Amino acid sequence: MRTVSVITPVHPAHMRFLPEAYESLRAQELPQGWRWEWLIQHDGETAAELSFDDPRVTFSASPAAGAACARNMALARSSGEFVRNLDADDLLMDGALQRDIDVLVGHAHVGWVTSAAHDLLPDGEVVSWASDDPGEGVLEPGWTLDVFISNEWRLPVVPGTMCVRRDLLLALGGWMALPRSEDTGLLMALQTVSAGYFIATPSMLYRKHGVQVTAGNAHNDPVDKKLRYGMIVDRAQALRHMCTQPAR
């Protein structure tokens, strides 16, 4: 069996969302010969482990160090050839993993996949985003970074939907060591060294709720954001420079 690894970092405020995330994962239908594994990593050593009575699910805890470190510790435990993001408070939509696998198997030069997403409001309503998606198909290296810069740090794709070849993810050092926006940092590194692919069919429900990390003051502080995004862009541009320089 071939495996896709689903990685979920979690901290105490989001533990209550894990059962719903599990149900969305359990409902996935994969291509023949494929299986999923779910690696939950608690950011902090004192969490009470949730049991899903499913051998495909493993739970571990590590010293509190932020989502990036939690993701990377889960990556260290993974065995799949592809790695899919799933934040603890979000849900996979039907067919999400199958579409990711189909693209990565069918396009050998594509290293990563993202897809459209919908919002899930507190009352259960599902809302489509105002679409400025790039459209179904291959995303050439460098395009995502150029749009990110020209649109004043507005992302053209949703990094929370990423599915990545594990060897490429390891070669880039996993998720970027930032207190926030670590998935954006990874995306910008990926798009520099490899073509990507955008799937127009939504794959994720992005939950809106009161303890959402991206709604917090720290995440949106202008000084903090300038430093985070500046580092993300500088890294991607340094990678681009290295990739375009002739070998010595």
Rank of each mutant, 00 (worst) to 15 (best):
V4A: 01
S5E: 07
V6C: 00
T8Y: 06
T8I: 02
P9T: 10
V10R: 03
H14C: 03
E23P: 04
S24T: 01
R26W: 02
A27V: 02
E29W: 11
E29F: 05
P31G: 08
Q32A: 09
L39T: 08
G44H: 11
E45A: 08
A48L: 12
F59K: 00
A64W: 00
A65L: 01
G66E: 08
A67R: 08
A68W: 04
A68V: 02
A76Q: 10
A76G: 03
S79V: 11
F82V: 07
V83G: 00
V83H: 03
N85E: 14
L86I: 12
D89P: 15
L92I: 00
L92V: 00
A96W: 03
L97K: 09
Q98I: 04
V103E: 01
V103D: 00
L104A: 08
G106F: 03
G106P: 06
A108Q: 11
H109E: 10
V110N: 09
G111C: 04
W112D: 04
T114D: 01
H118R: 12
H118M: 07
P122H: 09
D123S: 08
G124S: 06
E125N: 14
E125I: 07
W129G: 14
A130D: 15
D132A: 15
T144M: 12
V147P: 00
V157S: 15
V158C: 11
T161N: 00
M162C: 05
A171H: 13
G174I: 02
P179I: 09
P179R: 09
M188I: 07
Q191K: 01
S194D: 12
G196F: 03
F198Q: 00
S203E: 06
K208M: 14
G210M: 14
Q212M: 15
A215G: 10
G216L: 11
N217G: 07
A218G: 02
P222A: 05
K226A: 15
K226F: 08
K226R: 14
G230Y: 06
A236W: 00
Q237E: 10
A238D: 12
Q245T: 13
